[in-house]
Simulated scan of single mutants.
Amino acid sequence: MAGTSSMIVAGLTATALATVGYLGHRAADTVPPDLRHRSAGSPAPAPTSPRGDTRPTALPPRSGLGQRVVYSLRHDRVWLVDRGDRVRRTFGVSPSTVDPAPGTYRVTSRSGSVTGSDGVPVEHVVRFAAVDGTVIGFSAAVDGSAPVLDPRERTGGIRETRADGAAMWKFATIGRAVVVVP
């Protein structure tokens, strides 16, 4: 009987490890190339979506007016937009496990540095929404890493590179519009 129990536990453990390995591999596939760790001085590859297609860099239509941050859920891309629809900067991001609904929000709070919900120290945190108690915002990992997403965990941190996070921090002050598009 003890031998059977040991075999069941061993089988369950092997299955759990295989599942975690698979989920980790799938999560790594969703990290935008511009957030993957690169050696110093290596050029950033062309951004691609988790599906592998090239992400558009043109400002999405019907994405608001005036100075604003535009966040595309489909393309995991952000645009910092000045008056006259002039794009100041656009960049890829690594999404969180909880997405805000499409719509217009306002930056409600900011933090220079905190620990992210995944335990990673982050900086330039710009918060703009909440979904069922999960706060949604942009941030950059101090170590430059992208999050490893666990679909069972509710996280709201949309990860950017440190350089993009610094640009977001300067642009997205309290009250700035954040337009989320599908």
Score class of each variant (00 low, 15 high):
residue 117 S to L: 13
residue 163 A to R: 13
residue 133 G to T: 11
residue 146 A to L: 02
residue 145 S to F: 13
residue 159 R to H: 05
residue 144 G to C: 07
residue 101 A to M: 15
residue 153 E to D: 15
residue 129 A to M: 07
residue 117 S to I: 01
residue 138 F to H: 04
residue 137 G to R: 08
residue 104 T to V: 15
residue 146 A to N: 00
residue 114 V to N: 10
residue 170 K to S: 15
residue 131 V to L: 06
residue 150 D to F: 00
residue 150 D to N: 09
residue 114 V to L: 06
residue 98 V to K: 12
residue 159 R to T: 03
residue 136 I to Y: 12
residue 105 Y to I: 08
residue 93 V to C: 07
residue 119 G to F: 08
residue 118 D to P: 03
residue 153 E to V: 14
residue 121 P to H: 08
residue 93 V to P: 10
residue 140 A to K: 03
residue 151 P to H: 04
residue 127 R to M: 10
residue 135 V to Q: 05
residue 167 A to N: 06
residue 91 F to G: 03
residue 113 S to H: 12
residue 150 D to V: 01
residue 149 L to E: 10
residue 170 K to H: 13
residue 88 R to T: 07
residue 169 W to G: 00
residue 144 G to I: 08
residue 144 G to A: 03
residue 137 G to D: 07
residue 154 R to W: 11
residue 170 K to E: 12
residue 136 I to T: 02
residue 114 V to M: 14
residue 143 D to E: 08
residue 97 T to H: 10
residue 134 T to P: 15
residue 103 G to K: 05
residue 114 V to G: 01
residue 149 L to N: 09
residue 113 S to C: 00
residue 87 V to A: 08
residue 172 A to E: 00
residue 140 A to D: 08
residue 140 A to F: 05
residue 86 R to I: 11
residue 133 G to H: 13
residue 86 R to K: 14
residue 153 E to M: 14
residue 117 S to E: 10
residue 108 T to S: 05
residue 118 D to S: 01
residue 100 P to N: 13
residue 118 D to H: 07
residue 86 R to T: 14
residue 124 H to F: 06
residue 155 T to F: 02
residue 141 A to I: 04
residue 85 D to Y: 14
residue 121 P to A: 09
residue 112 G to R: 11
residue 144 G to T: 04
residue 103 G to A: 11
residue 114 V to E: 10
residue 100 P to E: 09
residue 164 D to P: 04
residue 171 F to V: 02
residue 152 R to T: 10
residue 151 P to Y: 04
residue 167 A to Y: 08
residue 148 V to C: 03
residue 135 V to E: 15
residue 172 A to N: 13
residue 122 V to D: 02
residue 117 S to Y: 01
residue 149 L to D: 14
residue 156 G to T: 11
residue 155 T to V: 01
residue 96 S to F: 04
